[in-house]
Design a protein around this nucleic acid. Structure first.
Length: 126
DNA sequence: CTTCTCACA
DNA sequence: TGTGAGTA
């Protein structure tokens, strides 16, 4: 399920295609970018290139707007989602994972057997 | 022809 | 948000 995410993140759609897929004018799409609600890439010719994720995001923005939420409000929503995403990584990195424990035990085993590990232990110090 | 930025009789 | 100008 990793390859799929990669494809959805590939910026290959020009603004014209996105306009049709999201039913938005180029003006609106560019304005939303100006408001940092979306961050399309730019090609060699300075043309905006969108990914399928960008299209989904534009659809979301349109829904929020339809529900009466303004640019600032939508920004807050995405800001909180980003915070929670980062918090989740922190909580996940804190405790030693099963793989960390395995590697630690493995290193111990090598030391006990008199076989020194080629590379020094590199399990998370954080 | 499509997209870009800038500006507003 | 729309729209026209002048580009690339």
């Amino acid at each position: 399920m990793k390859e799929k995410e990669l494809r959805r993140s590939l910026a290959v759609l020009p603004i014209g295609t996105v306009m049709k897929l999201a039913n938005l004018t180029a003006r609106q799409i560019r304005y939303y970018e100006e408001q940092d609600l979306i961050h399309p890439e730019r090609n060699a010719g300075n043309r905006r290139m969108f990914s399928l994720n960008d299209v989904d995001r534009l659809l979301e923005i349109k829904d929020y707007l339809a529900d009466g939420i303004n640019m600032a409000g939508i920004k807050e929503i995405y800001a909180m989602q980003k915070q929670k995403a980062q918090q989740k990584e922190a909580d996940l990195a804190r405790p030693l994972t099963d793989n960390d424990v395995r590697r630690i035990l493995h290193d111990e085993f090598l030391n006990i057997g008199g076989l020194k590990a080629k590379d020094g232990p590199e399990y998370p110090t954080h």
